[in-house]
Amino acid sequence: FIDQHRAALIARVTNVEWLLDALYGKVLTDEQYQAVRAEPTNPSKMRKLFSFTPAWNWTCKDLLLQALRESQSYLVEDLER
């Protein structure tokens, strides 16, 4: 899901800070967390977050999807259609 809908997630996720907090310490290191937060816009934050995903396994991507479902369920539901 995460890889399949990358472009839509970059464009449409609005609550990136919540995602970062949910992933911090589980998937994201402090350095990665700070790097994403330093980006000026939500799309650039999501691009930076996605720059780390090639090194993630399915469990990490599932944690991101779970966080998306909790914070932006309407968006996930729309993309699952």
Rank of each mutant, 00 (worst) to 15 (best):
F1E: 03
H5K: 05
R6C: 03
A7Y: 06
A7M: 11
L9K: 00
L9D: 03
I10Y: 06
I10L: 06
I10T: 07
R12P: 00
V13A: 13
T14D: 13
T14F: 03
N15E: 12
N15M: 02
V16C: 09
V16I: 07
V16M: 08
V16H: 02
L19P: 03
L19C: 12
D21W: 07
D21N: 10
A22F: 10
L23V: 05
L23R: 02
L23Y: 06
L23M: 08
Y24V: 13
G25R: 08
K26V: 13
K26E: 09
K26Y: 04
V27A: 11
V27D: 01
L28E: 02
L28I: 12
D30Y: 10
D30F: 08
D30H: 15
E31I: 06
E31V: 08
E31P: 03
E31L: 07
E31K: 05
Y33I: 13
Y33A: 13
Q34N: 14
Q34F: 08
Q34V: 08
A35K: 11
V36G: 04
V36T: 00
R37Q: 14
A38C: 10
A38E: 12
A38G: 10
E39C: 13
P40Q: 08
P40Y: 05
P40T: 11
T41K: 03
T41A: 07
N42V: 05
N42I: 15
P43I: 06
S44P: 01
S44L: 14
K45Y: 00
K45I: 03
K45L: 01
K45Q: 04
M46A: 04
M46W: 04
M46R: 05
R47T: 13
R47I: 11
R47F: 03
K48D: 03
L49F: 02
F50N: 03
S51L: 00
S51E: 14
S51V: 03
S51H: 02
F52R: 02
F52N: 02
T53P: 00
T53V: 15
T53K: 00
T53F: 09
P54N: 11
P54S: 14
P54W: 13
P54D: 15
A55Y: 13
A55W: 08
W56E: 00
W56V: 04
W56I: 08
N57W: 07
N57D: 15
W58E: 15
T59H: 14
T59R: 15
T59G: 14
K61D: 06
K61S: 07
K61G: 05
K61T: 04
D62N: 11
L63W: 06
L63D: 03
L64F: 15
L64N: 04
L64T: 07
L64W: 00
L65H: 12
L65Q: 02
Q66T: 09
Q66E: 12
L68H: 09
L68S: 02
L68I: 14
L68C: 04
S71I: 02
S71E: 00
S71T: 13
S71L: 02
Q72S: 11
Q72K: 05
S73D: 09
S73Y: 12
Y74F: 09
Y74P: 13
L75D: 02
L75K: 00
E77P: 04
D78F: 13
L79F: 04
L79K: 01
L79V: 03
L79I: 08
E80W: 08
E80D: 12
